[in-house]
């Protein structure tokens, strides 16, 4: 060993630099200059071991959500009946506590909104940013919702995605057989109530979280063969369109 002091640039001046002959401050721990000898338990080190006061930081439950693999490839499945029973009860509970059809739809929309926010995050994470990008264009975002997000939630993509030719901020997603409302039958006197308002809320929640502020509503547009056919009308906020223009005008 040279007698020169070793310069340790990462240590602030004033702090004593360590040499190999230094002993641990607490007489405890491995000292390379002594070798295995230094790990012997002496009276003082035993004291430290026995008398230390600690707060346990070991997780007490291994069932915490953070311990589970969120990217899990094995999906848990359950019966569509469970979801339908739950949804039916949710609708009748919302109905009891609402003042009218509009209020009921708003409540359902609000419930869906929370689902949408979380689903967007989950689906994106699962996708592991597969295409190594985020959607920054409105049309791409809508395509993502129409296919990927829809598939994650309902098992298949929605049927159509269209842009209104007359009104430039209106887009439409059509589902011929919406899963959530499959077993819901609307009484005649409830006119234009559509329980897919919850799904509309999901779309709205996802779009808002992604920065594409919009208002989404559900409308029944039945055909002879598809009595449940529902169109989700997406009205995009003005500011989103302005941003689209800055990014090079509307796509397609």
């Amino acid at each position: 060993m040279s007698e020169e002091e070793i310069i340790l640039p990462s240590i602030a001046s004033g702090v004593k630099s360590l040499t190999v002959n230094d002993r641990p401050m607490h007489e405890f721990g491995y000292n390379p200059s002594l070798g295995p000898h230094s790990n012997e338990i002496t009276e003082s080190s035993l004291n430290i071991l026995l008398n230390r006061k600690t707060i346990s930081l070991t997780p007490t439950s291994t069932h915490s959500i953070y311990d589970r693999n969120i990217l899990g490839t094995k999906k848990h499945e359950l019966s569509i009946s469970s979801l339908s029973f739950l949804f039916g009860e949710v609708v009748s509970w919302s109905h009891r506590s609402s003042k009218g059809i509009q209020d009921l739809e708003n409540r359902l929309n609000g419930l869906g909104y929370k689902i949408g926010q979380r689903t967007l995050e989950l689906v994106k994470l699962r996708e592991r940013f597969k295409n190594t990008k985020r959607e920054i264009r409105l049309v791409e975002m809508l395509q993502f919702i129409h296919s990927t997000l829809w598939k994650a939630l309902f098992g298949e993509s929605a049927n159509e995605l269209e842009r209104s030719q007359d009104i430039n901020n209106e887009y439409m997603i059509t589902d011929n057989c919406p899963l959530m409302a499959k077993f819901i039958n609307i009484p005649k006197d409830y006119g234009n109530l559509n329980c897919s308002a919850l799904t509309a809320g999901i779309i709205e929640g996802a779009l808002d979280s992604a920065g594409f502020y919009a208002h989404v509503s559900a409308h029944s547009v039945p055909t002879d063969y598809m009595p449940q056919r529902t169109v989700f009308l997406i009205k995009v906020e003005e500011e989103v369109l302005i941003r689209e223009d800055l990014r090079g005008g509307p796509m397609n």
Partner: peptide, 24 residues
């Protein structure tokens, strides 16, 4: 019954819907 006469869905939609209800 599960294998043969149950239409199955991804449980996450169910989980999230229930969560949203409890939060509400």
């Amino acid at each position: 019954v599960w294998k043969n006469s149950t239409e199955k869905i991804n449980s996450e939609l169910f989980t999230l819907t229930y969560g949203s209800v409890v939060a509400q």
